[in-house]
Structure formats: structure tokens, C-alpha cells
Write a protein that binds this DNA or RNA. Structure first.
Length: 956
RNA sequence: GCCGAAGUGGUGGAAUUGGUAGACACGCUGGACUCAAAAUCCAGUGCUAGCAAUAGUGUGCGGGUUCGAGUCCCGCCUUCGGUACCA
């Protein structure tokens, strides 16, 4: 019998599906374990080989935990709202719901093929009204709450309204953007519109006009984490700042808790650091500067209050609210021109020329709170309106940017920190002795900061303050394919939440998906839908992608519940995710929002814990080799071709590398066969390759390091192209997507699963190639062959030998330890060693092979199920118990110990396991190799590390 | 710039607490089987010298601690990821 995955895999796939083998119950005596994958966006390209990497790892772990006796929740679903489906709809007219469902269908086929143990009865789809009903419901909860600073939690907005009516807002400890103080009487006199405007400054989901990231090409605004280097993450289109009325989430209210609770999580330090940086906590002081000509004050934030005597000017962001009123009439023209200039610049422009210093003088002065000196007020784009207060005191002596500004505009520089005691310290290092600073003179920077804050508070110039880089999250998208806001506006524009009974508010059906005019969503064209509530208009923006993904893991616990987003019973049983596996690309987006929503739901008493994901593993990316040519000069059909990119693949038939060239913007043409080039010694010593350019029928000789670059020359040695090799993401637009289907078709799912694990550590990024897959394939065939003698079943009931037991239990220990530390690649090599040994021992004993098969079942579910059945079992191997390790089988009479002279290994001796220190020393010295090295030398010291090694220290 | 991760044979990688560097696999070399090929099996394979035993050398570079360093410390270099006029 030969191992034939094409036969056994479909058989079990069907059987598992029919028997609902992986269905999991919420009510059981077993301990729970929740293993979660980041659910995919179902793109048109299908799953590529990178997706399953994490899914396979988590599936192995889920299956392992199941065998260990846990009730394991291991679900899967689809993050089905999003831009690509809508962009596709704009181009083709195909409704996003339709294309999304088609893609989901394909994903499901691909996932099933690989043999994942998902409980599909719990599938979620974020674009399903039965799902997004609850996304809307949570949004309304956010809308209906504010953050109470004294209770450190979210509190219903109705209690705030009561407080306002009784005492106004002056004494209320809340996270707010409200700046105007009002009394109870003033509150009670307000119109409902005015009241709502005030409440918007408190709600956790609120509307405000702000300078947002507008992406013209996508016709929508984007959140900060959706913008990378001034370009949209999706599509790479330019992004500019635009003032718009938008929904936002007050995530900043949770900044401190999001930061503090990071400590409790088993996440990588790298990931925690990313979140910390994104939150960006900094301690300092808030300070008010009086103005010369008006009653108004400028509020600033600084982390360096000690340097205040070096503050020789102030800079406001061009968008700062006070700029207009404090500008001196004589300078109005320049200021206006500068504001216009700053507004015209996109983020990309700003980043492209960060060194250029620009700014303009307002003609007005502030009064230094300590020295009483007049200090000029400037505006400059290096001060960001969104961070801190949008205004700074500039200390050119101790801040590089302020220094550059002062130099350019000829402003005064007072050196206030003497750094002579700290050579090499840069301007922003908090080191040195204060000088020219009145009462701070002689103090160390750190002392001076503390003293200054104290004085600032005493004299009521300001107070100690903690500032965060984290901004509130923009929550509006001017797109069709997202959750509608359950909000309607009356004629005055006052927003009202829909009643719970009116949820879900479903998306209207559209035929035209082009954005509507004036930066509006296509939804605005569905007039009937917009006006379905007489006297009201519905919000036409939709929610962003992270809305549905911020709580989906809770829905899996109780996926079909029509009465609650999750029942209390279910959430109290499953609690939180024990293991979450996914890519780093969600480090600050999804993972931050999900934590925020979870804390909010915790405040409302709806979930039992404060953190959703206890342990998190980031699987590395599987990249593709990208080949980019620099100087390709060839013609095709008489036309000059443009080489815009190149993907390289292994030709499965010939095992040769194949390159593809892209001609113009059209489809790729096949460029070359690149096959192994052997040097004179017939060795592949320098990874050289020869290429043949098919389209022209001309030979090219390509050489170079395949991991870095290649170049090609023709027979005459004339250089044709230099190809730089990069590792890049797999994407449809780069023609480098490798689908798992092909691999599974050829080698089977078990082989594919094990090969992906064998590639290397799960957290590491690695390029995809199938070079080593034959090794895994051979392993599976060898393992299978242990059960057969020629064509006949050869399993015996003989009692195993000591050696056979040892091989088995060594493997049990190694594999179990390695699964626990998520080192799956070394598990595979342990299996290989085990099978190699058993093959050598010609072991066909059920007592050995049966536990080994259970051990292997999480990795290769099909082949193990098949052999399990052939061993005479009626029920599935995936429901049995994990083999128990018995250290007794590993005890040996003798151990091999290396003997080193001065740390260099010279011999390996065999000593009895129970030998004494003296006996070991004697045996070591008796060794012939040791004798030889001891000749004419003096033994100084002898170190015995029991069971490890012996080291003899020797001198001439 | 700042923060984080990494650098080991021709290749992917292993070495879990400072204790035999290169497990396991790919590739390659030689051999067996075959008319031949594939598949399979056996042997070899870090580099240098040597027929060999063996010796020297070897984990990005330069120092250090230690009986002993891929692992710890100091100073660099390179690559990747994140982030940035963040006051």
C-alpha cells in the first residue's frame, strides 16, 4: 500500500463535515480554551500561502489542547466589509455583497481543503445584518456614555445630563473636549441643539469638525493607522488634511488603561513597544502664557519646564484657533499667505522636505511668566495642531527644531542647560546643569523639572500634566460597503439614536457605487432610505473596517444569539481568548481598538475581563521574491518594453526558477528559465544561474546572489539588465501570489501543513519556496510505510523493546515541550528523527505506533485518522487522549559525556549513569585522546558538569 | 533620529538555564537497483591541510568576563519591522 493523500483526504474531509466532528458546546465540565485566528478579509485573490501559516499553527495548538482534555473554541469567520469589494463594484457594477459571498465561498473551499478544525456553526460575517446589528448596538452604547474620571470608567450620559442640570459642568471630572464652563442655569436655558453640542464633547462616540485624513482617490477619510507615510494603506493614494464633520471614538479616554494593562499581557515585547509608542505617554506641564494685547492666554504643553528661561519665542500651529485674533494687522497678509501655504501641503509634501524650516511672525507678543520679557509669537507648520495644545514655547538652546527655527529667523538663543559634564549628550537628553535660569541655576535637569512644576502649580501658571500621542479615532467613512450608523438627525441637525428595536439598520441596495458629490457617501443617493423616518434624515456615512473586527471574537462564543451580542452565560464561560494568532500589521489598529471596545464593554458589566487577548503570537509574513530590473533593453514586437516588475516561481515540473517580466501595464510575459548553474567543480557554490530569454530566442547569462541581485548578459558579454531581488508581500497586483491549492493538489494537505510549519519559526518572516517540501513528503511516506510490509498491513501486537520505548517517549517529550513553546518547526524534525529511528529498528508494533499517531494527529490530521481507522478504531483519533510521557523509559545505564581540554572537545567517553565525581574524573583522564593532550603539560583544574561535559584545564 | 527584532554551512534552519556548534531537512558528491529514467536505499558533505588518524580554524566585526561564550557585558557594522517636526 502506498500513501495516497488524494484518496484518503477527500474521504475524511467529507466524513468530518457530515459528523460535525469539530462542533463545540458551551456547556461542559471540561476546562475551556479559546484559540483564535485573525479572521481574513475575503479578497478576490483567494487565500495565498501566507494566510494559512498562522491558521495551521493555531489549528495544531487547538487540536493539541483538545487531545489534552480541554473544551476548545476554535472558530473562523470573515471581515467582510471593506474597500476592495466596493472598488471592484465601482469598476464592474457587481454588488459588493455578491462578490464578497463569492470570495467567501472560495475561501471556505480553500480552508476546508487544508483540514482546519474550525467549528463552522459559529461562523461570523461582519457584513451580515444579524451581525452588524450588534456592531450598531455597541456604537449606540458608546454614543450613550461618557468617561467619568473619578470612577475611571464609562458612565451613562443621562447621569451627566442630570449633573449639568444640578451644578453645571465646572466640577465634573470627565474626559472632555468641552472648553466652555457653564452653570446649571445656563445649561437649563440651552436649546436641544446647544445641549447636544455640549454633550458631543463628552460622549465616547461623538461628532466633531476636525482636520481629518482625506483621501481623494478613495473618496473617504481615513484613521491615522490607515495612513502610512502620507499615503493610504489601501491602494497607496495621497492623503491630505481636510476640515470635515465626522464621527469619532474617544479612545483617548482609555489611553492610560490601554497602556497600563499591556503589562499583564503575554505579547511580544516588540508588539507591546509598538502599542506603547502609539499611545505615546509623556509627562510634563501645562502652562499658560499671557498675551500683550488681549485678555486671552496661550496654553502650551512641555516636557521640559526646566528650560523655560530659554524660551525666547512661541510657535503656534497654522490651524491654531487663536491665530486669527492675535495676528497684528500689519502682519495679516504674510500670516494669511502662510496659512494658505500650509493648508495646501499634503502629508507627503511635508514628509518629503522635513528639513526645510518655514514660518511667519504674527506681530504679536506673549509675556514670559517668570522673566516678564516680551517674546514674539510665530506660526509654523512644524507645530502640529493635533498634538498637545497646538502651541509651544520654543527653547532654541535645547530643542533642535526650535534651534533651526531661531537660526532661520534670527531669534534669540539663551543657553540654559550646561551639558559640559555630559560629552556626547544631544539636545533632547535630559542631562546637564541649569544656568541663566534664575532660581533654577545649579540644579540637575531632572531636579529642575520637578521644582519648576511645583512652582508653576504654586503660582497658578499651569499644572502637572500627562499628554498622549494617541488621538481619538476617526469613525466615519464616506463609503457604501460598511455598517450604517444607527443615527437620524432632525431638521435642526440634532442626532438621535435609533431604538434598539429598530436595529439592525440595514444598508440600502444600490446599483451605482460612485461616491456622491461633496465628499458624501454613495448611500446619500438612496433618498428613500435616507428619509425612511418622517421628519428625520439618516446618517449616510458608514463605519470603518475596524468596527466589525473590534468585537467579533465575542460573537463566536454565541454566534447566532438574536437577543444579545453574546449571552452572559456564554461570555462568562469562554471569558477571553487564550491564544490569538495573527500578523503584526494589526499591531496598532485592530488590536488597539479591540482592547478599547473590550474595556468599554467591561465598564458596562457586559464582559468579565479587561483584556480580550491574553496570549498573542505574531506569525511572520510569507514573502515572495520580487525581481526588479534596472536597465532592461529589449524590444517585443518591435516595441520598446518596459520592465516594471518580476516574480519568480519554481517550475514544479522542472524544479527550475522561472521569471516573469511585465510589459507595460499589460499581463506578464514569461521572461526566462533560470536554472541551476554549476561551477567547474559541479558545485552550486555561489548560487549562480543561467537564464534563457524565451520570447526572443536569445541566450542570456544571469549570475549573482539569488537573494540579492542578478544580472544578465548576452553571449557577447553585453549587459542587458540588472535585477534587484527583494522580498515583498504577496499581492494580486504584483502577480506573485502563491495559492495553497496547487501545493495541496500535488502533495496533500498533511504535507502542506507540515511543510509550512517546517519552514522555520512561526514568528519569523520568510520567502516562499517549495525547495524543501520533498523532505516532508518523504517523511510522510516513510511514516506510512511503518504500517506496511510491501502491500500488506504489518502491525503487530508484540511487546516493544527498551529502545523502541525510548524513541517513542523521547519524541513525546520533545514534541509536547515544543508545542507548548510554539516551536512547531522543531516538532517536525522530532517526528522525522523518530520515524527514521523506528524505520531503522524495523518497528511495526502497535504499542509504539499508536501513541505516535496520536502525537502526530494535530499536525497531519488526515493520514493519522486513516491509520487510526486501519488500526481498528471505530471513532475519530481527534477525540482521543494525548499520550502520557513516562520518564522511566528514558533512564539509561550509561551516558556519553564529552571531554574537553581547555574548552575544546577532544573525546567522548561513556560513563555509568550513577558514576561518582571521582570515577568520572578517573575515566576522563584515562582517555587516550586526553592522555595525548596532557603530555608535557600540567593539569590545573578539572570541572565536571554532571551529564553535560567534563573540562580539563591544562597549562604548558 | 528614536523604538524593536535579527545576523550561524551552498540553502531553510537547530542548539530551551553559559556546557559536544551546525540537529532535522533541502541541495550536492559517490555508490546500489534499472536497458534508461523516476522513485527508493546506502555512504559522504562547515572551511583549510592530509590517503588517513588527526590538526588548525569557524556563529556579522573589534574588545571583555569565564575553566568554558552562538548564548552574558562594552563598542561598532549590516539587514528587516515600527515610528517621527509628538514639544
Amino acid at each position: 500500500m502506498h500513501y495516497n493523500p488524494e484518496e484518503i483526504e477527500p474521504k475524511w474531509r467529507e466524513k468530518w463535515g457530515k459528523t460535525h466532528l469539530y462542533r463545540v458546546d458551551n456547556t461542559t465540565e471540561k476546562p475551556k480554551f479559546y484559540v483564535l485566528d485573525m479572521f481574513p478579509y475575503p479578497s478576490g485573490a483567494g487565500l495565498h500561502v501566507g494566510h494559512p501559516l498562522g491558521y495551521i499553527a493555531s489549528d495544531i495548538f487547538a487540536r493539541y489542547k483538545r487531545l489534552k482534555g480541554f473544551n476548545v473554541l476554535h472558530p473562523m469567520g470573515y471581515d467582510a466589509f471593506g474597500l476592495p469589494a466596493e472598488q471592484y463594484a465601482i469598476q464592474t457594477g457587481v454588488h459588493p455583497a455578491k462578490s464578497t459571498d463569492e470570495n467567501i465561498h472560495r475561501y471556505r473551499q480553500q480552508l476546508d481543503q487544508i483540514g482546519f478544525s474550525f467549528d463552522w456553526s459559529r461562523q461570523v460575517k461582519t457584513s451580515d445584518p444579524a451581525y452588524y446589528k450588534w456592531t450598531q448596538w455597541i456604537f449606540l452604547k458608546l454614543f450613550g456614555h461618557y468617561y467619568d474620571l473619578s470612577a475611571q470608567k464609562a458612565v451613562p450620559i443621562t447621569s451627566l445630563v442630570n449633573l449639568f442640570a444640578e451644578q453645571g459642568n465646572a466640577q465634573i471630572p470627565a474626559v472632555t473636549t468641552q472648553t466652555i464652563v457653564f452653570s446649571a442655569g445656563e445649561w437649563n436655558a440651552m436649546s436641544s441643539l446647544e445641549k447636544e453640542e455640549v454633550l458631543m464633547n463628552y460622549r465616547l462616540a461623538y461628532r466633531k469638525t476636525g482636520h481629518v485624513n482625506w483621501c481623494e482617490a478613495l473618496g473617504t477619510v481615513l484613521a491615522n493607522d490607515e495612513v502610512k507615510d502620507g499615503l493610504s494603506e489601501r491602494g497607496g493614494h495621497p492623503v491630505e488634511k481636510k476640515a470635515m464633520m465626522q464621527w469619532s471614538l474617544r479612545i483617548t479616554a482609555y489611553a492610560e488603561r490601554l497602556l497600563q494593562d499591556l503589562e499583564t499581557l503575554e505579547w511580544s515585547d516588540a508588539l507591546k513597544a509598538m502599542q506603547k509608542n502609539w499611545i505615546g505617554r509623556s509627562e510634563g506641564a501645562q502652562l499658560f502664557f499671557d498675551l500683550e494685547n488681549t485678555e486671552k492666554k496661550i496654553e502650551i504643553f512641555t516636557t521640559r519646564p526646566d528650560t523655560i528661561f530659554g524660551a525666547t519665542f512661541m510657535v503656534l500651529a497654522p490651524e491654531h484657533a487663536l491665530v486669527k485674533s492675535l495676528t497684528h494687522p500689519d502682519y495679516q497678509t504674510e500670516i494669511n499667505a502662510y496659512i494658505e501655504y500650509a493648508a495646501s501641503r499634503s502629508d507627503v509634501d511635508r514628509m518629503a522636505e522635513t528639513k526645510e524650516v518655514t514660518g511667519a511672525f504674527t506681530g504679536n507678543y506673549a509675556i514670559h511668566p517668570f522673566s516678564g520679557k516680551r517674546i514674539p509669537i510665530w506660526i509654523g507648520e512644524y507645530v502640529l495642531n493635533e498634538y498637545g495644545t497646538g502651541a509651544i514655547m520654543a527653547v532654541p538652546s535645547d530643542d533642535d527644531r526650535d534651534h533651526a527655527f531661531a537660526q532661520k529667523f534670527g531669534l534669540e538663543i539663551i543657553p540654559v542647560v550646561d551639558k559640559s559634564a555630559y560629552p556626547g549628550a544631544s539636545a533632547h537628553d535630559k542631562k546637564g546643569i541649569l544656568q541663566h535660569s534664575d532660581f533654577l541655576d545649579g540644579l540637575e535637569v531632572k531636579e529642575a523639572i520637578q521644582k519648576m512644576i511645583q512652582i508653576i502649580e504654586e503660582r497658578k501658571f499651569g499644572k502637572r500634566k500627562v499628554n498622549y500621542k494617541l488621538r481619538d479615532a476617526n469613525f466615519s467613512r464616506q463609503r457604501y460597503w460598511g455598517e450604517p450608523f444607527p443615527i437620524r438627525y432632525d431638521q435642526e441637525g440634532v442626532p438621535y439614536p435609533l431604538a434598539e428595536a429598530e436595529l439592525p439598520l440595514t444598508l440600502p441596495d444600490l446599483e451605482n457605487f460612485q461616491p456622491a458629490s461633496g465628499g458624501k457617501s454613495p448611500v446619500a443617493r438612496a433618498e428613500e432610505w435616507v428619509n425612511q423616518f418622517p421628519g428625520f434624515e439618516l446618517e449616510t456615512d458608514t463605519m470603518p473596517g475596524f468596527a466589525g473586527s473590534s468585537w467579533y471574537f465575542l460573537r463566536y462564543m454565541d454566534a447566532t444569539n438574536p437577543d444579545a451580542f453574546v449571552s452572559q452565560e456564554a461570555v462568562n464561560y469562554w471569558k477571553d481568548v487564550d491564544l490569538y494568532v495573527g500578523g503584526t500589521e494589526h499591531a496598532v489598529g485592530h488590536l488597539m481598538y479591540a482592547r478599547f471596545w473590550h474595556k468599554f464593554l467591561f465598564d458596562l458589566g457586559l464582559v468579565p475581563g479587561v483584556e480580550p487577548f491574553q496570549k498573542l503570537i505574531n506569525q511572520g509574513m510569507i514573502t515572495a521574491y520580487g525581481y526588479y530590473a534596472e536597465n532592461l533593453r529589449f524590444q517585443k514586437d518591435g516595441q520598446e518594453t518596459v520592465f516594471i516588475g518580476n516574480a519568480v516561481d519554481l517550475d514544479s515540473a522542472s524544479n527550475n526558477l522561472i521569471g516573469y517580466a511585465f510589459v507595460g501595464t499589460g499581463s506578464p510575459i514569461r521572461l526566462a528559465y533560470v536554472y541551476d548553474y554549476l561551477d567547474a567543480q559541479n558545485r552550486l557554490s555561489k548560487s549562480q544561474f543561467t537564464a534563457y530569454y524565451e520570447a526572443k530566442g536569445k541566450d542570456f547569462y544571469v549570475a549573482g546572489d539569488v537573494n540579492k541581485y542578478l544580472w544578465a548578459t548576452d553571449q557577447n558579454g553585453e549587459e542587458y539588465l540588472t535585477v534587484n531581488v527583494v522580498q515583498e508581500k504577496m499581492s494580486k497586483s504584483k502577480f506573485n501570489v502563491q495559492n495553497p491549492d496547487e501545493v495541496v493538489d500535488k502533495y496533500g494537505a498533511d504535507c502542506f501543513r507540515m511543510y509550512e510549519m517546517f519552514l522555520g519559526p512561526i514568528e519569523q518572516s520568510k520567502p516562499w519556496d517549495t525547495k524543501g517540501i520533498d523532505g516532508v513528503n518523504r517523511f510522510l511516506r516513510k511514516y506510512w510505510s511503518l504500517f506496511f510490509e510491501g502491500h500488506s498491513w504489518s502491525i503487530t501486537q508484540d511487546v516493544p523493546t527498551q529502545e523502541e520505548w525510548k524513541v517513542l517517549h523521547q519524541t513525546i517529550r520533545k514534541v509536547t515541550d515544543d508545542i507548548e513553546r510554539f516551536s512547531f518547526n522543531t516538532c517536525i524534525s522530532a517526528f522525522m528523527m523518530c520515524v527514521n529511528e523506528l524505520k531503522r529498528l524495523e518497528c511495526h508494533k502497535q504499542a509504539i505506533l499508536q501513541p505516535l499517531t496520536v502525537l502526530l494527529a494535530p499536525f497531519a490530521p488526515f493520514i493519522t485518522e486513516e491509520l487510526w481507522e486501519r488500526m481498528g478504531h471505530g471513532s475519530s483519533i481527534h477525540l482521543v487522549s494525548y499520550p502520557v510521557f513516562d520518564a522511566g523509559y528514558l533512564v539509561t545505564d550509561e551516558v556519553e559525556v564529552p571531554v574537553c581540554i581547555n574548552g575544546k572537545k577532544r573525546d567522548v567517553i561513556t560513563v555509568p549513569a550513577n558514576a561518582t565525581q571521582q570515577e568520572i574524573e578517573a575515566l576522563a583522564q584515562a582517555s587516550e585522546a586526553v592522555q595525548r593532550h596532557l603530555e608535557g603539560k600540567v593539569l590545573q583544574k578539572l570541572i565536571v558538569v554532571p551529564g553535560r561535559m567534563i573540562n580539563l584545564v591544562v597549562r604548558e
